[in-house]
């Protein structure tokens, strides 16, 4: 029975990219398994963050959820409607409700269009309102995101990085969405500006009741702004829990190592801290390791890990993990607490 608090339900989502390899006579197509059997739910009004090293499939997941990439298989239920089965037209009609904000604010804004045109564009495309009402809506949106409406005739290059990200946000909000995928919206910004944009996103969420899928690699920012966090590695979710549990009691060896690698802005604490340093780098998703995809770097791998794929399962309510060593009695597997909080 569907929990009616859930806005987005992702089930066994897969997105493979076929790529051609080899020379002319020896051509073969291999599959880049960018997203490989991912499931999660996002509740109305919450922020679920996706974290993990680059190339682990965060952006592809975000895009596949919004059907900007056609999923290879799996379901994406939005208000119990399966987006993967909708026709182009049906999807188009739903588009206003589901929006995306990208990392690179300069590449995602047309340099030849004024800010008014950029922010008003979704309204024009979806044929919402007259020139006058669109103008008024652009004024309203600019005020909402903290931009002076007097600047609406200016062009993207006349704005700073933080302001350009506000333009992006205003455009994403033009059609009153309910669900917004934010793909690293602050990664390219300076520290002092990141806080401005994060606070804006938080305020807008409160004000407008937005639901976010927030993609990021900065774990401290994720801790600050999420309700729940999913940790991805090579196209799979390794662990998912509410923020507090995940940061204070991570169970998966990858989550533990990842958190151990993140420095904290506290010199005294850092001085005492022991790190678990993962060896090597993330393998290519076109040639993912057998068994547990993390086994080539896992400090705790056992024989079984190289052959058996660990089942992604709920350990206790709201806390799911994919690891052979985590038993249902919630025992922590790495003996020393890694995140010395």
């Amino acid at each position: 029975m569907a929990d009616n608090n859930v806005l987005v339900r992702v089930k066994n989502l897969k997105k493979f990219f076929p790529i051609k390899q080899g020379v002319i006579f020896n051509r073969q197509t291999i599959q880049v398994k960018a997203v490989n059997d991912v499931s999660f739910e996002i509740k109305q009004g919450e922020t679920l963050s996706l974290v993990g090293e680059s190339g682990c499939g965060k952006s592809t997941t975000g895009r596949a959820v919004l059907q900007l990439h056609k999923p290879t298989s799996g379901q994406v239920l939005y208000e119990d409607q399966d987006l993967t089965t909708l026709s182009e037209g049906e999807l188009r009609a739903l588009r206003p409700k589901i929006q995306m904000i990208f990392q690179d604010s300069i590449a995602s804004l047309n340099p030849r269009h004024s800010v008014r045109k950029i922010i008003g564009e979704p309204l024009v495309i979806h044929n919402v309102g007259t020139a006058k009402t669109i103008h008024n809506r652009v004024v309203e949106l600019m005020e909402l995101v903290g931009l002076n409406p007097k600047w609406m005739k200016r062009f993207p290059h006349e704005f700073s990085g933080g302001q350009r990200q506000r333009i992006n946000i205003a455009r994403a909000l033009a059609l009153n969405p309910s669900f917004v995928v934010c793909d690293e919206p602050i990664s390219a910004l300076d520290v002092s500006i990141q806080a401005q944009v994060v606070n804006l996103l938080k305020d807008l969420q409160q004000q407008l009741g937005l639901t976010y899928l927030f993609i990021a690699h900065d774990l401290s920012m994720v801790q600050y702004l999420s309700d729940r966090v999913a940790v991805m590695y090579l196209g799979k979710v390794m662990e998912l829990a509410d923020k507090r549990t995940l940061f204070s009691d991570p169970l998966h060896p990858y989550t533990q190592s990842l958190m151990s690698a993140v420095p904290l802005p506290q010199p005294k604490l850092e001085r005492k801290r022991k790190r678990i340093i993962l060896q090597g780098e993330v393998p290519s998703p076109s040639n993912a390791p057998s068994g547990c995809v993390f086994h080539t770097r896992c400090p705790l791998a056992i024989d079984r890990c190289t052959t058996d794929v660990p089942e992604y399962r709920q350990i206790h309510l709201g806390h799911s993990v994919a690891c052979h060593l985590v038993d249902d009695q919630q025992s922590s597997i790495i003996p020393t607490r890694l995140n010395s909080k």
Binding site: V191, I193, A195, N199, S220, Q223, Y224
Partner: peptide, 15 residues
């Protein structure tokens, strides 16, 4: 402006 420097990372960031 950064989480975690001044406390537990729960308070509102000041930009």
């Amino acid at each position: 402006a950064i989480p975690g420097a001044t406390g537990l990372g729960e308070e509102r960031l000041e930009s």
